[in-house]
Write a protein that binds this DNA or RNA. Sequence first.
DNA 1: TAGTGGTCTAGACCACTTC
DNA 2: AAGTGGTCTAGACCACTAA
Lengths: 241, 241
Amino acid sequence: MANVLYLSVVDDLKKKITSGEILPDKILKSESKLMEEYSVSRMTLRKSLSLLSNEGYIYSVPGKGYFVRKPDTDIYQFRFNEYDSFLPDVEKIKLLSVKIDKPTEEMIDNFVISKDEQVVKIERLIFSNKEPVAYEIFLTPYIPNKPVVEDKLSFANYYKALEMKLPFSIKNTIEMKLVLANEIIADKLKIQEREYVFKVTKKTYKKDNNNLLNYSYYYIKPNYFILFAKTPEEDESKKIF
Amino acid sequence: MANVLYLSVVDDLKKKITSGEILPDKILKSESKLMEEYSVSRMTLRKSLSLLSNEGYIYSVPGKGYFVRKPDTDIYQFRFNEYDSFLPDVEKIKLLSVKIDKPTEEMIDNFVISKDEQVVKIERLIFSNKEPVAYEIFLTPYIPNKPVVEDKLSFANYYKALEMKLPFSIKNTIEMKLVLANEIIADKLKIQEREYVFKVTKKTYKKDNNNLLNYSYYYIKPNYFILFAKTPEEDESKKIF
DNA sequence: TAGTGGTCTAGACCACTTC
DNA sequence: AAGTGGTCTAGACCACTAA
């Protein structure tokens, strides 16, 4: 297909795998045989096999050969942030409060801080369709001499700025469940107490030491949130070269 | 670190990127300079850069150079299937009914079938903790001469078998939202009518032509489902070689 | 011992960007 | 014209697996 050798090899092998001509866990021809079959050099062939391996089609066992992989079809991917995840589109995000306070027991457990240190607590209300649709509580340890100009960059963006600066060093987790709204949440979202709301807990960790950097609770009105996820795609931009 | 040349180059460059020594969108040294710096051949260096590219750390622009990528921290990954996704662990899955019937308007819209063809409808009840926790309706076009022995492989596993046979050719989507239980759902799950339940819609498509192969609705009791997702990990098993 | 994949080198030619 | 990354080759040596 393409006028690039290693891609045409990839195309052909993919076809053989997706069509079922070579089934999962079955062995492929050896490198030397494939080199002959496609009339390419070893390095070129290996580039093709490398690509197929990266895309999850095959795996290799040293000394044995290449095998077709059985992919995991139960894996899904989605995107979540305070701007794109609510329905209809988010109109504005209102900063309710910024407090610097002593940590609760829960925070001392979660963060790597002592009870003498302080914690930043930010409350925000996310509006959509003229209504409050989500109430967010964000928590992070307070570090007074952080090289972020606190007055200039509002606290609301403080942690975003932090993430932006060192994007490779963090990882997130998210937990979503249904809970009954308590008085505070009901008040913020203007709903009845003991109505169901989505509770999304988002935690941000430092990759290398697994320290918790910050976490947020989002309380979301049921009708304003749909989670849509799909099988992860092979990322074209990350193609091997 | 490792006694493999290209991995030690990867380690060093990763350190420079994660530490912030080279910031997102900033250019790396050119291949020829890096070859000199690390005293490796071009192909070895390119293998290192290829790995970093695959893991999302860098990208390349032909004629210009290599740049540090700004990774997307809003992406999450999770696993969903009828065995591992409910709380506590699933005890059994009860097959309620298998019907072969004419398709509804909705099904004709979704599937690539005419109104004269037929559809398989499977109802299942997922038990956990002696209670029904989820009610599933599965739909797929009925193909009489499918090479699956219908009596042997129960219908409940019919589509699983299908997926297993051609795992590379399918992709899934999932949608999760809150809905109010209607009479049927309330009855199956033994809850009150007009209580909230999770509605999960899972659709399976053929990759090449985007045809819908089957879809399921899961109605799940709120307390028996928590979605847990996290930043996708670099898959060690798919490492470049 | 023969065959397998894993690492590594030193070249070559190309298309593209920048000046 | 000089520098960049992209493709491709023909070797070499190694560790591992299987008979």
